[in-house]
Design a protein around this nucleic acid. Structure first.
Length: 291
DNA sequence: AACTACTCCTGGAGGC
DNA sequence: TGCCTCCAGGAGTAGT
């Protein structure tokens, strides 16, 4: 689940509340969570601290004295911090049944910090990973991911987006935007939001897009991030109906509800096997919209 | 090179 | 209640 806004919320929470605190306890409950080609182990964090954090797309990096930790929450990762000395935070995939009790059976890592603060990593589907990387290898490690410009960075410009979309041809715009080598940070929810904002059908090919339409996609990404990042993400809880229509997300998981642009009914379909929500009135298949 | 299908997992919802 | 099927917000890999 977590896309850029959720990962950024986790990063800010860790950065603001736990950075610089000594790690006094480590419980790795699912060993497969952690991987290292260099033979590093999570135990090296004992008596160390997270000195700085960074992020590129959905990858978060913790910088510590012995190594860098590259964290990916994948679909169901969640970070929760609690403690007497901190406000605490919850970010990532909502885990309704376990919101109050921690740890639980999907908790895979617990870090204890000095001053009675704890950081829990939860991941129902076990896709999340933490790579332990020597400092000297971090640049290469990140380069191998071939990530496009981060959506919140200065490198993400209209020109950069145009350039990257113009390199694509027959592919559909939705999977192209989901491809992290195009731009880094969008996932299934936010791509639906962006294409709805831009009034573009997700199956349109990249080569069919006009300059004006690419401009609208860029604007849609900027505006969507502007809303989602301060909120800490979409926090969709699929076990509860989404009824607060004026609130984000406006299109994703809103099947059967009225489109906030035109009032037509939002429909659900599949694009490259991913659940996709759209308004067929606003997002016509052939792009006949002239405005 | 570029695009698509499959795969790693668990759990919740809905049908019967 | 129980069993079954489908679905889920990511992304690497293999196949075309």
């Amino acid at each position: 689940m977590p896309e850029l806004p959720e990962v950024e919320a986790a990063r800010r929470g860790i950065h603001d509340q736990l950075r610089g605190r000594t790690i006094v306890g480590i419980e790795l409950l699912r060993p497969g969570l952690v991987q290292s080609e260099a033979g590093l182990t999570i135990d090296l964090l004992q008596d160390q601290s997270i000195d700085d954090t960074s992020r590129h797309g959905k990858y978060m990096v913790w910088h510590t004295e012995p190594m860098a930790l590259v964290v990916h929450m994948k679909m169901t990762g969640q970070f929760v911090a609690r403690g007497d000395g901190i406000p605490g935070f919850v970010s990532g995939h909502p885990v309704p049944a376990y919101d109050t009790e921690l740890p639980h059976k999907s908790t895979h890592l617990i870090l204890d910090f000095e001053g009675e603060a704890r950081l829990y990593f939860t991941d129902i589907r076990h896709f999340g990973r933490i790579w332990l990387v020597p400092h000297d290898d971090l640049a290469d490690h990140m380069a191998r991911l071939r990530l496009g410009p981060d959506l919140l960075s200065d490198a993400f410009t209209l020109e950069a987006l145009r350039d990257r979309l113009r390199r694509r041809s027959i592919g559909r715009i939705k999977p192209i935007l989901l491809d992290q080598t195009t731009v880094a940070g969008l996932g299934n929810i936010y791509v639906d939001e962006v294409l709805w904002y831009a009034k573009i059908h997700p199956s349109r090919t990249a080569e069919s897009l006009t300059d004006a339409e690419i401009d609208r996609i860029y604007e849609g990404i900027v505006e969507t991030m502007k809303i989602a990042v301060p909120e800490g993400g979409a926090k969709i809880n699929r076990s509860k109906a989404l009824t607060d229509l004026g609130q984000f997300p406006f299109i994703h998981a809103r099947e059967g509800f009225p489109c906030q642009h035109c009032g037509a009914t939002i429909t659900k379909t599949k694009v490259n096997n991913r659940g996709t929500y759209l308004c067929l009135d606003c997002q016509p298949e052939r792009g006949r919209l002239s405005s």
